[in-house]
């Protein structure tokens, strides 16, 4: 009887162990976005203009350089921070001044945002300023976004182009 009780105890212990594993190994389910929603990804890898424009070297300057390094123009490395403004149905959802990457701030300006959105129709207005100017924008785009539940739309801002990618409808 005692032996039986011990075996029952062992069985119960293993069963409890399995129940704990089973309860949390594949659930409870989790929804990364609210029900009936999708998401908009805003990805930017954009090369802004240089802070100082390149300038041609004078003949004297070229003469001072070693013969193998006599380039025709010289460029400062730093690039202008890119101002990104995105409006969704008129509401400003992104307003960021993105520095160029790198120690010398001479690389592309990178931005990546994930914006969960309820399914529906939206108007997107994107404005970019990537030159040393103080006012106005250098690039402006307007898109219509039709988002269905589970869609992950991508607004991709490249060096010279901006594309809104929507999932292929199955």
């Amino acid at each position: 009887m005692k032996r039986l009780a011990r075996h029952a105890g062992q069985l119960a212990a293993w069963a409890l162990f399995l129940v704990i594993i089973a309860a949390f190994a594949m659930g409870p389910a989790f929804s990364p976005v609210p029900e009936g929603s999708g998401e908009l990804k805003i990805s930017m890898a954009h090369l802004a203009e240089r802070i100082e424009p390149c300038r041609p070297l004078t003949e004297e300057e070229r003469a001072e350089l070693p013969p193998t390094r006599r380039v025709t123009e010289v460029c400062e490395r730093g690039r202008v921070p890119t101002l990104v403004r995105l409006r969704l149905d008129g509401e400003l959802i992104i307003d960021r001044l993105v520095k160029a990457a790198g120690w010398q701030e001479d690389g592309r300006a990178y931005l990546l945002e994930f914006q969960p959105l309820p399914a529906g129709q939206y108007e997107l207005e994107l404005a970019l300023r990537d030159t040393p100017r103080e006012e106005g924008y250098d690039m402006q785009h307007h898109f219509n976004l039709a988002l269905e539940p589970g869609d992950s739309a991508l607004l991709e801002i490249g060096d010279g182009d901006v594309v809104l990618r929507l999932p292929e409808r199955r």
């Binding site: 293993w14 162990f17 399995l18 594993i21 089973a22 949390f24 190994a25 594949m26 659930g27 409870p28 389910a29 989790f30 929804s31 990364p32 976005v33 029900e35 929603s37 999708g38 998401e39 969960p116 539940p149 589970g150 869609d151 992950s152 991508l154 990618r165 929507l166 999932p167 292929e168």
Partner: peptide
Amino acid sequence: ALLVLSVLMPVYSHAPADLDRVPLSLDIDW
């Protein structure tokens, strides 16, 4: 014990990854 669980409750995959979609419900391993 683990074998019993593997037989009773086999592990399965979700639908293939599709980065144009966002998963709506995931049976997560907590």
